[in-house]
């Protein structure tokens, strides 16, 4: 996407573009986006923190959480970070086959996590915890919903990337593209690390 490029100079980034710092435009942009996302998730987490105690007697966090289940799905997402980093390292070695394999495994683990979240939401809903039941439920579903959407978008992007690598249709630097997707994915994982501890493990 870094389209403006002309000058041959000692400062040339990996895509062959002129660059004052020698860094990739895309990667800088991705890190800025992630920095910006900190304030998005920060706002959602803070709202949850503020409202986590505001619920009816028997439908609060301490009553509905299923820690073993959530731990398992957290573990799944954590492992997807490992497979993602393995995909990046395969891409660096120009190993398309393994890149595709690890990307697919990452997407699969991500899908497993989302499936777990859907299951969890359904269970809560059956127990009577709807989106508008209490301030706690609204802020909880909003926070985890936003995270779930991020994971889902990530899954779609990963699968698209696998397809694009197969058909050799990646525009730009392939290694860097995989790396950028990786940064996004790890960030989503990092957010879950916060959510898992702050929302699930610390009692309200």
């Amino acid at each position: 996407m870094a389209d403006t490029a002309v000058h041959a100079d000692e400062h040339v980034d990996h895509g062959g573009h002129y660059s004052s710092t020698g860094l990739s435009n895309n990667k800088l942009a991705m890190w800025m986006f992630l920095g910006s996302e900190c304030l998005l998730f920060g706002g959602l987490i803070s709202t949850y923190m503020l409202y986590r105690g505001r619920h009816s007697e028997n439908l609060g966090p301490d009553q509905v959480w299923d820690i073993p289940f959530t731990s398992a799905s957290s573990f799944v997402l954590l492992m997807s970070s490992l497979t993602m980093v393995l995909a990046v390292s395969s891409a660096v070695r120009d190993d398309d086959r393994n890149t595709k394999v690890w990307l697919s495994v990452t997407a699969l683990l991500g899908a497993l996590f989302v499936a777990g979240q859907v299951y969890e939401f359904t269970t809560f809903y059956r127990e009577g915890l709807g989106f508008t039941t209490s301030l706690f439920s609204s802020s909880f579903y909003t926070l985890t919903g936003f995270h779930g959407v991020h994971v889902s978008v990530g899954i779609i992007m990963l699968m698209s990337l696998v397809g694009m690598i197969s058909k050799n249709k990646v525009v730009g630097d392939k290694k860097e593209t995989v790396e950028l997707f990786g940064l996004y994915w790890h960030f989503v994982d990092v957010v879950w690390i916060l959510i898992f501890t702050l929302v699930y493990l610390i009692p309200a």
Partner: peptide, 23 residues
Amino acid sequence: FAIPVITVALFMLMFQRSFDATF
């Protein structure tokens, strides 16, 4: 860094008005 903050607020406003949340 400021836009994401208003984004959160606006989403909650939307959930409040369109989906009956009570933020």
